[in-house]
Design a protein around this nucleic acid. Structure first.
Lengths: 142, 142
DNA sequence: TAGTAGATTATATTTATTCTAAACTGTTGA
DNA sequence: TCAACAGTTTAGAATAAATATAATCTACTA
């Protein structure tokens, strides 16, 4: 199966027609060697560097949201001025370096299974995310 | 020690002069029977209901940020359009009901201790937060 | 291949948050 | 006590991410 077929498949499954622009977004997102974290602004830059067609912000937002809904992307819960997304949708967690505004993956195996004993009637847990905020160690010696 | 003395103390320790407006903010935040979650907008409404002086948005933002820095308030990591804060600064976690945009506390005892095996050189962990997103249970039967 | 439902785009709008600068006030020290 | 000043408050402006709009364009279907 060619790469672009995979992209078309992902788009169709997300309820989107495969268009030139959306294929370019897929190339930026899913053709990378590694999974990565990004903001919308950064994604637009990646697309500009890789492709020579222009993709409007609105299209990028729409496509990213459709992929999120389908589970091809994850949003990382952070109080930042912009939203951060992750192409790694497997179960894992994050460090957030508040000094450098940088996200670092924590592999699932590096955190013991999170077992929440409390339940809410009529509700089920859809996702569990751990955010560990980190700062320079020497700050503690002040 | 009178309530207002405690507020003056909190303000001073946060590096702020105790002013009429800031005392009103303290009354809204720390005089409540229970801890609670709030957005800035909601806090402004609470102040308006309790006091008959007007407090500008800028003052509320500044004061909340100073309390956060000092550790008298916590920000809850969520990708919402507005920031959510918590007057409960003890170690605990949250459910976030995505359908009703509502936060629910998870007591520390209801989650096994989170043990992160991975470390980052030169950095130390400042906080660990668990966000469990919940949705209606019957949705899963679609 | 024509018709149409959906897609794209530039631009406008919305909204939370931050900034600004002028007016005001708590504090300090003489 | 009170003048001086550093810190505070405020309305309104500025900023920026995200969403909405509406005209144009394009992928799909019959």
């Amino acid at each position: 199966m060619a790469y672009s077929d995979q992209y078309i498949d992902k788009l169709r499954k997300s309820g989107l027609r495969p268009t030139k622009q959306r294929i370019k977004i897929c190339e930026a997102l899913f053709n990378a060697e590694k999974t990565f974290h990004f903001t919308i602004k950064e994604l637009v830059k990646i697309i500009e560097n890789q492709a020579n067609i222009k993709v409007s912000l609105a299209t990028v937002y729409n496509t990213v949201h459709a992929f999120m809904k389908k589970g091809y992307l994850k949003e990382i819960p952070l109080n930042a001025s912009q939203s951060y997304y992750d192409t790694n949708v497997t179960h894992h967690h994050h460090f957030f370096d508040e000094e450098e505004n940088k996200l670092i993956d924590i592999h699932q195996d590096d955190v013991d299974e999170i077992n929440i004993k409390r339940t809410i009637p009529g509700k089920k847990i859809r996702s569990v995310e751990v955010i560990a905020k980190i700062v320079s160690d020497n700050q503690s010696q002040k």
